[in-house]
């Protein structure tokens, strides 16, 4: 599944890929905060949804307008899932090991393991909130392809749904001469989306960030002030 998809991507793009699992001197290791999370573009160019998915999305939008959020697992401290989790302002840490690139999201204390080898046993895994990702280097770009997502996560904070056929392809690279890591994600879902949807966002690397403990269950990063207003408690350099 992953190998064939990988080959197709390489053929279309006409690039020379580093074989999955092959060592690369490149790395994404570091700590980051969202320089540009899901920016204005991601809210202005929402994907065209098909049939039942369009109906579900309309209901969610209406619920948000009325102040009652439905269909959002994170409202009950469940998983945010990829790519929606990239829309939050909390810090991200990436650990790079020979076998995998590990994403640690401070928000909700979530983890995503991006396997560098095309592990056959991924197929035996149940769906995960952030899918079953495989990644490889193509020159200075790290490509991540993911399938096998938990179905009830959102693609976007406004409530965009997806089906179990969701597949994402990310292309991550540092913008030349900067510490800005750009991620361009192509989202495909032949059951829910009329056409592929491309999201892009930028993370700023800052290894001075102090990763904090986040316990959604006690709401410790969204304190309610004496005036009843909810604020967001960010740490380290993530201001």
């Amino acid at each position: 599944m992953f190998r064939s998809a990988m080959t197709a991507v390489i053929a279309v793009l006409g690039v020379v890929a580093v074989q999955a699992g092959e060592a690369s001197s490149n790395t994404l290791a570091g700590r980051y905060f969202a320089k540009v999370g899901f920016g204005k573009e991601a809210y202005e160019k929402l994907p065209a949804l098909k049939g039942e998915y369009a109906k579900v999305y309309a209901e969610r939008l209406e619920s948000r307008r009325s102040g009652k959020v439905i269909g959002d697992p994170t409202a009950g401290c469940s998983g945010g899932g990829f790519p929606r989790i990239m829309a939050v302002p909390y810090a991200t840490e990436i650990l790079d090991t020979p076998e995998m690139m590990i994403w640690l999201w401070e928000g909700g204390d979530r983890v995503r393991r991006v396997y560098k080898a095309d592990r056959k046993d991924l197929k035996s895994m149940p769906p995960l909130y952030s899918g079953l990702p495989v990644g490889w280097w193509e020159g200075d770009t790290f490509v991540i392809q993911s399938e096998g997502f938990v179905e009830d996560t959102l693609l976007h904070p406004t409530g965009v749904p997806h089906s179990k056929k969701l597949r994402t392809t990310e292309r991550l690279r540092f913008i030349e001469g900067t510490d800005l890591l750009e991620n361009v994600t192509t989202i495909e879902d032949p059951e829910a989306l009329s056409e592929p949807w491309v999201l892009r966002w930028t993370l700023k690397r800052d290894d001075s960030i102090k990763m904090m403990e986040y316990s959604c269950e006690e709401n410790n990063r969204h304190p309610v002030g004496e005036d009843g207003r909810v604020s967001t408690n960010l740490a380290g350099g993530a201001q």
Partner: peptide, 11 residues
């Protein structure tokens, strides 16, 4: 070679 699944307590 172990592969870890999600274990979200609230679920």
């Amino acid at each position: 070679g172990a592969m870890l699944e999600d274990f979200v307590c609230v679920d």
